[in-house]
């Protein structure tokens, strides 16, 4: 039974759990992008800020034309500026998640070795 259990442990530690860590890792990557709405903000990157836009009234006036277009451009620029911040936060958090994921993934695979090293180190340091 010990041999069977040891085999099962190896499968669990080196195959099953890494698979689960990868799934959870991907979920956190998705979360970091979703929480900061990166995809949606990228899609609406140049959309006017809070939908504020001006429309041309009837008749043509160069002054009004310029006025409206400049105002709309400012609204869009403002929207893009604010969105940039959130997108950057989202991307930074995603990079942090990716790096943490790598550490956890490698750390888990190396855990048996790390435990042995810790015990060895502890014995050396204490005694």
């Amino acid at each position: 039974m010990v041999a069977v259990l040891a085999f099962k442990y190896m499968y669990w530690h080196f195959v099953y759990v890494p698979g689960e860590i990868t799934k959870a890792w991907m979920n956190f990557v998705w979360f970091s992008l979703n929480f900061f709405s990166v995809e949606q903000l990228a899609r609406t990157y140049f959309a006017p800020w809070r939908g504020v836009r001006w429309k041309q009234s009837r008749g043509f006036s160069i002054r009004e034309f310029l006025n409206i277009h400049v105002s709309n451009m400012i609204s869009r620029a403002l929207g893009a500026f604010v969105r940039t911040w959130l997108i950057v936060f989202g991307l930074v958090s995603m990079i942090i998640v990716l790096l943490s994921g790598v550490i956890i993934f490698v750390g888990w695979l190396a855990l048996p070795l790390l435990m042995l090293l810790a015990i060895y180190g502890a014995i050396n340091v204490i005694f």
Partner: peptide, 21 residues
């Protein structure tokens, strides 16, 4: 806590930035 279903509960920021006041 790592399931998508649970992570969704934290919501999302800025989803209404393209929507009007």
């Amino acid at each position: 806590f790592w399931l998508k279903k649970n992570l969704r509960r934290y919501g999302a920021l800025g989803t209404d930035w393209a929507s009007g006041y």
